[in-house]
């Protein structure tokens, strides 16, 4: 489905992620080669600053138009209601005029779709509530719902459950995995990553240090990875 070869990514403070080399930028990904096949459920783990988000955004750009992104920044629009924020996932399915009218007066059918999605995500808040009134966990689920509402085959998530309790996280992860053919997700919960995904990739300082497809997953190796990084 997607193959990247000898990827080098630079992070430029002024322009964001970039493959060009500039003096102001710092390199975040080094000579990374990776192939992800259709139908795979891939978890990306690694200590903070390892380049996980950079890699994820690069993948998202490569898959442009075929993947739904649930980013760490959430990208919720504070002035809009829960409903509208989730509906944003469906913008591509409708004519712009439909979308504009919906912004003023929500359509019944969309309302009921969004409502049932919220129930699945255990989000029991009134749909008309503005998202700036929500707690961190609730906001995260709105962002997740929006990504799910895109109804794509591929789901790309950047720690989408970081603000949720572990039990709810595993329930929601199950929903996400069930609804998508391919899932690529940065996970902060290593245990959950290793139990729920069929492939785990580990990054450290921009290098691919582990790919469970080639090696058998070694718990100790992963633990060591986090520890050395913490020391360094």
């Amino acid at each position: 489905m997607i193959t990247i070869d000898n990827l080098n990514l630079h992070y430029d403070k002024t322009a964001g992620y970039n493959t060009d080399i500039k003096e102001t930028s710092t390199q975040v990904i080094f000579d990374l080669s990776l192939t992800i096949n259709e139908g795979e459920k891939v978890a990306i783990i690694g200590p903070s600053g390892a380049g996980k988000s950079s890699l994820l955004h690069h993948l998202y750009q490569e898959l442009q138009g075929n993947a739904a992104l649930c980013s760490q920044r959430q990208g919720l629009v504070d002035n809009l209601s829960i409903y509208h924020n989730i509906f944003m996932g469906a913008l591509a399915r409708h004519h712009w005029l439909f979308n504009l009218v919906n912004l003023i007066r929500p359509f019944k059918k969309e309302l009921s779709n969004v409502s049932s999605l919220c129930q699945q995500l255990e989000l029991d808040q009134p749909l008309a509530k503005k998202v700036d009134k929500l707690s961190g966990g609730q906001r995260q689920r709105v962002a997740l719902a929006r990504a799910l509402y895109q109804q794509q085959n591929i789901f790309i998530g950047d720690e989408p459950f970081s603000a949720l309790d572990p039990l709810m996280a595993s329930r929601l992860l199950e929903t996400v995995l069930k609804r998508h053919k391919t899932v690529i997700m940065v996970m902060h919960d290593r245990e959950l990553a290793m139990s729920a995904f069929d492939r785990v990739i580990a990054l450290d300082k921009g290098h691919l240090v582990l790919d469970s497809q080639q090696h058998s997953v070694d718990h100790q190796q992963i633990t060591a990875l986090y520890q050395t990084s913490a020391v360094a």
């Binding site: 920044r73 959430q74 504070d78 944003m88 913008l91 591509a92 912004l103």
Partner: peptide
């Protein structure tokens, strides 16, 4: 950041109103 999460296949008007103007 809202623009980032919107499906890139959506038309420019929808993306702009939901992603930018609404903010």
């Amino acid at each position: 950041s809202p623009l980032e999460s919107i499906d890139s296949r959506a038309d420019i008007i929808s993306r702009f109103t939901y992603g930018k103007i609404a903010q």
